[in-house]
Design a protein around this nucleic acid. Sequence first.
DNA 1: TTTAGTGCAAAAGTTTTGCATGGTC
DNA 2: GACCATGCAAAACTTTTGCACTAAA
Lengths: 154, 154
Amino acid sequence: MIFSRNDGYPTDVGTASQLEDMLRHHGLRPTRQRLAVLAVLARERNDATAQGIYASLTRRGEHVGLATVYRTLAALNGCGVVDALMHNPGEVCYRLCGPGHHHHLVCDACHRVVELVDCDLDAWLAERAADHGFTVSGHTVEVSGTCADCRAIV
Amino acid sequence: MIFSRNDGYPTDVGTASQLEDMLRHHGLRPTRQRLAVLAVLARERNDATAQGIYASLTRRGEHVGLATVYRTLAALNGCGVVDALMHNPGEVCYRLCGPGHHHHLVCDACHRVVELVDCDLDAWLAERAADHGFTVSGHTVEVSGTCADCRAIV
DNA sequence: TTTAGTGCAAAAGTTTTGCATGGTC
DNA sequence: GACCATGCAAAACTTTTGCACTAAA
């Protein structure tokens, strides 16, 4: 799996030309700006806000308009390439994630994110929901905790 | 349990004097404004935004400043009296919930919320998290689906 | 050359804050 | 009287949008 990561470390997320192919595959033109946003996401072990990504780009001298960052993230989220996390009120965090069903384990201290890929809650939830007359269309689990690195510091 | 509800229906959430006691119990002065906000939350089977609560109060002729609504919700959330749900980007929803550990089953169509109280995920999550070096401090599950009423309409 | 994407600035929206006033203990 | 809570308006923020311009197909 070339475009997926399983923990937060900056693993191989594809060369520039592979990122281009991915964008094209989703009907998105591989522009300089989109590749730059993807590069920041690929380098980020934590989740990142639109504002934060914009700041990263500016810091590195890559000129990408803030509106473009927002539009790019919306497009990538629409394709399922990035996940949107809403643990903080008032802002959305984005993260380049694997394509399958998974949940997020987030470090309270450093915001590092790990994907939990094995989840078999469906049957259990469907049963509980049926007790209340609901049919289930989806679910998200967010687990908060402390990663090994941060625990070591304290 | 007098201040808890299990589904979204407007059940008995306490008389005015009981609400006063609850506020006092948390070190909050039982002002007209706070009781009014609580009354709106108690009457609401769905979750509600600060803006929506403000609108409800205004509609009923109760004059409570918008800043006061925000401050009241923050205080009640801090006490654990109301839960904050963040399913929509850019706004926080609040809901008067039971005091114990529970999760939320939310109707996609009408935003009705039901609390799921039996949850056994702790051991399973702790194990998965340990595989990645994390210790778990908490978790939230948000289940989306369609309630019986909304399914009937379609 | 046709269409999609970008930049900039303005606008929209939610939430927070400062400070004087009023209510509660 | 001391302290907490409120109201109002301004400010801070994130996010969206309009429109002329640029780049990709």
